[in-house]
Design a protein around this nucleic acid. Structure first.
Length: 506
RNA sequence: GGCGCCAUAGUCUAUCGGUUAGGACGCCGCCCUUUCAAGGCGGAGAGACGGGUUCGACUCCCGUUGGCGCUACCA
């Protein structure tokens, strides 16, 4: 079914992250395969920003993703920052294109306007769920006459555009690594293509862009296999040849659940701040993509490119094993000359601006020059060692203390910009929410963030440390108290925005 | 619940019907060494379960179990 012919056309792949949070290692992983595959075949690799979700997408996130991806050492031939002949590469700038294609589907009867309210849809799904039947739009608005549909739309009634899906028959998705996967159309939903805000959903934008950008191979996360039938159907409706599809297994936490921020560091920037070298991180991710010949586990992206064979990628979801990453990173570090090591260390955390800021914070607090480095050591460390005993003297009950840590961590995650002002606002807000004086909570935060009840000023320290390191230190501190139970998490996060669904790129 | 994907040591993996099931991380021991690392050498440790197919299954088929994903006007 998906039978693009790589021999006949130039291979083009893409990575298409959604700028709705921190740059995710899953994005680097997907980018790496796509990059290597394109390079291997002398083709092009592009970067596209999938920011059709107006509510969750932010420019800060987009900037961070671009920067993080550049940090990995990967480069792309076309993208929002480098341009290219198939632009724009930001979906929010392509709305008119999607609308045109949605209209085309509407005109050919392959899509229809749906005026159903969210309430009605919810009710419908509840009934289906109770009955154990597939949850799927029941087609009510599909039966509307073109006449009525047009009239209601013209009258300003809000609607979405849904795709038509056959009610019988099967769709065979040919996955490059998994072989044919069969779906009954009866289980495929009449997916929304255009939202009531006029912007497309992933499904429409993705298919239209991959076609217009001449993508030949779509290599993406496993979370997309169940929407592949919809995508294939869209290609068919438009009369386009679909690209080759390949779904990668999802990276896992040590407990084998999908890698998630609340259980594990998932940010590319976290690894950067912890002092991992990009070549080590990519080497590690590469090890999950292509088995290494015996004794050759350290290799460059170029070497990986030569060896990569999509059909041989192992399909079990690999655990992100930090111990292995540590070993690899050590190998890279040891291979550096002393001069190189000094340079990279300096570039990593000892740039002049940062040193000046630290000196300013420390100057009034030292009595000997020999005090300075020890007083700032925690700003150059990854995790700090804390135990339950470290928090003795905070005169807070365990539960309040854990809640203070957890709320701060979660609320800080929800901040768009992580700077001194945001930290101060959030931490003081938590104190207020807990009905405590910030002064009484300060010690808790000092211990968790710096490893000691006394240190350089907290808010500045946290800004210097950055969001990822702070989140990890909060986690470590919480773990010292046995972590947060699922029940507590539910109760304590009621007023918080939900965790980002995933970071793995499309 | 429905649909789909996956299944070799704690972890990442090799094996494409016949092997003492190989390697790497981690772990343990030894060597080297002023300590600790690094490095070298060695060790323990695996085919989820049950049926088939076959002269012969880790490998092919079916079932069970387990894990994961999707089930949104998010991607």
């Amino acid at each position: 079914m998906s039978t693009a012919n790589p021999g006949a056309q130039r291979v083009r792949t893409r990575v298409a992250p959604s700028p709705t949070g921190d740059p995710h290692v899953g994005t680097a992983y997907v980018a790496l395969v796509n990059y290597c595959f394109a390079r291997k075949h002398g083709g092009d690799f592009l970067l596209r920003i999938e920011d059709t979700d107006q509510v969750r997408s932010t420019p800060e996130s987009e900037r961070a993703i671009l920067a993080a991806l550049h940090w990995t050492g990967l480069s792309w031939d076309e993208g929002p920052d480098v341009g290219g002949p198939h632009g724009p590469y930001r979906q929010s700038e392509r709305s008119a294109i999607y609308r045109r294609y949605a209209d085309e589907l509407l005109a050919s009867g392959k899509a229809f306007r749906c005026f159903c309210t969210p309430e009605r849809l919810e009710e419908m799904r509840a009934i289906q769920r109770a009955a154990g039947t597939p949850q799927k739009y029941d087609g009510q608005c599909c039966a509307l006459s073109a006449d009525e549909s047009g009239r209601r739309a013209a009258a300003g009634e809000p609607f979405v555009v849904r795709m038509v899906v056959p009610d019988s028959g099967v769709c065979v998705v040919n996955d490059l690594a998994r072989g044919p996967i069969t779906f009954e159309y009866a289980t495929v939903d009449m997916q929304v293509l255009l939202k009531s805000d006029g912007l497309p959903t992933y499904h429409l934008a993705n298919v239209v862009d991959d076609y217009l950008m001449e993508i030949t191979h779509v290599i993406r996360g496993e979370e997309w296999v169940s929407s592949a039938p919809k995508h294939l159907l869209l290609y068919e409706y438009f009369g386009w040849e679909p690209p080759v599809l390949m779904h990668l297994p999802l990276l896992r936490n040590p407990d084998h659940t999908k890698l998630s921020k609340r259980k594990n560091p998932t940010g590319i920037l976290f690894y950067e701040r912890m002092g991992y070298l990009p070549e080590a991180l990519m080497n590690f991710l590469g090890l999950l993509l292509a088995p290494a010949p015996e004794g050759e586990e350290i290799f460059s992206i170029d070497a990986l490119t030569r060896r990569l064979d999509l059909a041989k990628i192992s399909l079990g979801g690999p655990v992100f094993d930090v111990a292995k990453l540590d070993w690899i990173n050590g190998k890279y570090l040891h291979a550096l000359t002393t001069e190189e090591l000094m340079q990279r260390t300096q570039a990593w955390g000892f740039d002049r601006d940062r040193l000046v800021r630290i000196a300013e914070l420390a100057r009034a607090r030292i009595e000997r020059l020999s005090d300075l480095v020890p007083s700032a050591a925690y700003l150059f460390a990854g995790r700090v060692a804390v135990t339950k005993e470290s928090f003795a003297g905070t005169k807070l009950a365990d539960e309040a203390l854990r809640k203070a840590l957890a709320l701060a961590m979660w609320r800080l995650d929800a901040e768009r910009v992580f700077d001194k002002a945001a930290v101060e606002r959030v931490l003081k807000g938590v104190a207020e929410a807990l009905g405590a004086k910030f002064r009484d909570l300060a010690r808790v935060y000092y211990v968790a963030m710096t490893g000691s009840p006394t240190a350089l000023p907290l808010f500045d320290s946290m800004e210097l440390l950055g969001r990822d390191i702070c989140r990890e230190r909060f986690r470590v501190a919480l773990d010292a108290f046995g972590g947060v139970t699922a029940k507590e998490q539910k109760e304590w996060t009621r007023d918080l925005p939900p965790d980002e669904p995933n970071g793995a790129a499309a």
